[in-house]
């Protein structure tokens, strides 16, 4: 599926903030305990999305700040999300021009890899600071996240379609 090169309205800064706020809210929702095992990291996915599509607005600095907030929200170690998001944002920025041109399927595969890098960095950070390995199920959420990627992209493009279409 080649992505149509449609003309979109310019993205408003407000929307970006709103989506991040929503993602953080999802982190904070008191969900049943088991759901953490498969629920993807929405903040991480949104950072990837916005860095990919709006690299001039959302960059490494934003990723770092959001990572700090996510650290507090998830009651993790201070800096683990920040480090992971910073590195994945940089990886996206390296090949941003290329990645934008890919269709959603290929993008999803790339996103899977990037989300796994996220998880890997966090695991390494936790294990380096003395935590035990949590098990391979820790690498399951990125799969779900990659499956949700096309849906997320279509959803976020929705407000910017021209009315005439």
């Amino acid at each position: 599926m080649e992505r149509p090169q449609e003309l979109l309205k310019p993205v408003k800064r407000r929307l970006i903030y709103l989506t991040f706020a929503l993602a953080l809210i999802v982190e904070l929702v008191p969900l049943p305990v088991g759901s953490v095992r498969w629920l993807p990291d929405f903040v991480g996915m949104l950072i990837l999305y916005w860095v990919l599509n709006q690299p001039s607005r959302v960059g490494i600095g934003t990723a770092f700040l959001l990572g700090l907030i996510a650290d507090v929200a998830t009651a993790g170690l201070f800096g683990q999300h920040a480090l992971a998001y910073t590195i994945t944002a940089y990886l996206v920025l390296l090949r941003q021009r290329q990645l934008v041109m890919f269709n959603l399927g290929v993008q999803a595969i790339v996103v899977l890899g990037l989300l796994q890098v996220n998880q890997l960095i966090m695991v390494i950070a936790r294990m380096a600071t003395g935590s035990a390995f949590v098990g391979w199920s820790f690498f399951l959420p990125p799969l779900v996240g990659a499956l949700l990627w096309p849906l997320l992209t279509n959803l976020l493009v929705l407000p910017y379609r021209q009315r005439s279409l």
Binding site: G59, F78, G79, Y90
Partner: peptide, 30 residues
Amino acid sequence: RPLVRLISCATLSVALLVADSRYGLMEPAR
């Protein structure tokens, strides 16, 4: 440039990680 940003941000977060896990310095910020 992005690499500079990456290095500064990554260093900062590693510093935060160490400060939090080893010395518990980040409690006020948290």
